[in-house]
Design a protein around this nucleic acid. Structure first.
Lengths: 192, 192
DNA sequence: GTCTATAGAACGATAGAC
DNA sequence: GTCTATCGTTCTATAGAC
């Protein structure tokens, strides 16, 4: 339930966002959204055409937020290595997982190009953003020139996404942290 | 539908395994299992207590299969680096994802200790198995002695699990391959 | 814009005949 | 062991009053 002062459509989007994060698309019912948002059946179908339409609005918001959160750290100060380190070590609610990445395991999201698009764009943006930083690092000498920037970036993003998998499997954030530290050790500049 | 010659309970387990892989636990209904297996309602509730019980049998089988497939490659010939390389590069149906890892995004699996246990055990086994190989590599000189074996192993497993996420988001196996190549480049012995 | 009422289908499970 | 019938609930959506 949300306190008043926020529009109904806003509460619907935010409740859907939370439920998609916790339970995925298949596991989220309109009924559950209505209960959490405190809105009635009529309101939901007034503001949105149906579950896919509301989910799209929620997914787009999660995508935006994910990009903004990542960029805030990636655009920070320090060497390229330090900026990637900051991204990998930033505070996360690890056991909740990634609100965007988790949707890739949802068959109905993957089957619908409109729903999949924001997910694809977000992870693609992240890989490109990090690849640019790796490229900087190659120029500045922190990273070996032989490295393929976009491949290293893919490994960084995959380690994060996979770290969530390991953590949720074990019920503890420790596995996420281990993967991240392992990658950072491999990524660390040899000579300074 | 399965050809005859296999027991009904066998067909039920195998159909459930496929559906859990494709649609997850929440997205898989008893009805869908019955249709795919060709069994009737009565048969399913005769052999299994219900959906969770049948799912547990299916998850255990996927867990076993995953361990066997991984070990077949990890126990192969070559240096520690080459064995990990072989594991990372082995043929996969990338867009299908990992039948075990994908279950970590299923709220009902994570909430049920019995269903989560085989998932946890499998990923834990895999990390331990790979950590042992990294340890060998440290002794033989292929990997830097300063590396933490279990952290590197976590990074390897996370890259695979996260690679599936990237691939499914983009609808192409290319992103998985990129992440794996990025990790292998970082992992490669510097001096031979 | 929001409410309640209603709809047809699917969900997960049980009962009881054969 | 397998079948059909049935159950109460939830799913997603529509209708129509207010």
């Amino acid at each position: 339930m949300y306190s008043s002062g926020v529009s109904t459509s806003e509460r619907l989007i935010e409740s859907t966002r939370e439920l998609l994060w916790e339970r995925g698309y298949v596991g989220t019912s309109p009924k559950a959204i209505l209960e959490r948002s405190g809105a009635g059946q009529g309101s939901m179908y007034h503001h949105f055409r149906g579950k896919p339409d509301l989910a799209l609005a929620a997914i787009r918001r999660s995508a935006e937020e994910t990009r903004a959160t990542a960029d805030a750290v990636l655009a920070g100060p320090g060497t390229p290595y330090q900026r990637i380190e900051a991204y990998l070590l930033r505070e996360r609610d690890v056991l909740r997982g990634c609100p965007v990445g988790r949707l890739t395991m949802d068959p109905d999201v993957i089957a619908d190009d409109a729903l999949r698009a924001p997910v694809d764009e977000t992870l693609d943006w992240l890989r490109t953003r990090i690849a640019g930083i790796v490229e900087e690092g190659k120029e500045q000498g922190g990273f070996a020139p032989a490295l393929d920037s976009s491949e290293v970036a893919a490994a960084v993003v995959a380690t994060v996404q996979g770290g969530y998998v390991l953590a949720r499997a074990s019920g503890s954030p420790a596995a996420f942290d281990a993967g991240v530290r392992g990658l950072l050790a491999l990524l660390a500049p040899r000579e300074r």
